Computed example of a mutant assay.
Amino acid sequence: MSLLKRNNALTENGFTNTVTTDNHITTRGSDWYFAVTAIMAVSTIAFMGLSFTKPRSQRLFHYITAAITLVAAIAYFSMGSNLGWTAIQVEFPRSNPKVAGDFRQIFYVRYIDWFVTTPLLLLDLLLTCGLPTPTIIYTILMDEIMIITGLVGALVKSSYKWGYFVFGCVAFFFVAYTVVFEGRAHARALGQDIAKVYTVCGVWTIFLWFLYPIAWGVSEGGNVIPSDSEAVFYGILDILAKPVFGALLLWGHRNIDIARLGLHVRDPAETDVQGGEKRAVNDATNNNTTIVDNATATTV
């Protein structure tokens, strides 16, 4: 019965942080955040379970993808619990009662989630296409700039927030160029099957990421939509960009040996087995050679 009790997160955690805000999520928004938490948690379990269908040396993408949804589950649990936020004075006060008030609830925990998970998403993609390590590092740096400027902009009350928005968009275009053009060129060189997986997952990701600045502009930026609508907008995007992306990626990787991507993961257990097999073959070969030599000697 305790699992069926009413959601009391908003009552227990309240809306007084640095200041009190009236422009915040309702119980419906909290319920939605908890629903997304469940989706992320189930996805994490599924991805980790699927990893056991592969040898340990082939589980890299399963581990990265499961880490993405695990971090997201923690972030959404925090937001559903009405934690990890602060109240920021809005630049554009609205007459609509659903977004009325001088202060808006800003979930900074969402950006902590993205700071960890978006580089992992890019790592999933850019390792798939075999992009050089320096390019991967620089692309992830641009991604981190995109996330940090989004957070800083959300926490600024004046029009200067849009300057950070522009910096973030410029960084995003660099990331998009690398994924769409450089990544696809490298993926084609690795084989048609790899190119197909990369193209599907890459286009899917960049298309969704183009929608995030729109969500930011009508919520943290412009204070156009209420916090519950913000929760639904970001939640749907995150579900598509993380669990659905992960399912597409791992399905595509099911028959791809990561050694084809230039990745070599050493597993001592597999190495010992392979070493034992090689020794057995060598011993058999040596024995056969001895027998042949003896037979030859006898014949002579």
Rank of each mutant, 00 (worst) to 15 (best):
K5Y: 00
R6V: 07
V19R: 07
N23P: 00
T27S: 04
D31P: 10
A35W: 12
M40C: 10
A41F: 14
L50Q: 12
T53E: 04
Q58D: 13
R59V: 14
T69G: 04
I74Q: 04
S78C: 03
W85L: 08
T86C: 03
T86I: 09
Q89R: 06
Q89T: 05
P93C: 02
P97W: 10
F103D: 06
F103L: 09
R104G: 11
Q105P: 06
I112H: 01
F115R: 01
L120K: 08
L126E: 15
L131I: 06
Y138A: 09
E144L: 09
I145W: 00
I148W: 03
I148A: 07
L151D: 09
S158H: 09
Y164E: 05
F165W: 11
A171G: 01
E182Q: 14
H186P: 02
A187W: 02
L190V: 01
D193W: 01
V200G: 05
L211E: 03
I214N: 07
V218K: 04
G222P: 04
I225T: 05
Y234R: 03
L237Y: 10
L237C: 06
D238V: 13
I239E: 04
A241I: 12
K242L: 11
V244Y: 08
F245T: 06
L250K: 00
H253T: 04
I256V: 14
I256W: 10
R260C: 13
L261A: 06
D267W: 03
A269L: 10
E270I: 11
T271E: 15
R279V: 14
A284I: 10
N288L: 15
T290A: 15
N294Q: 14
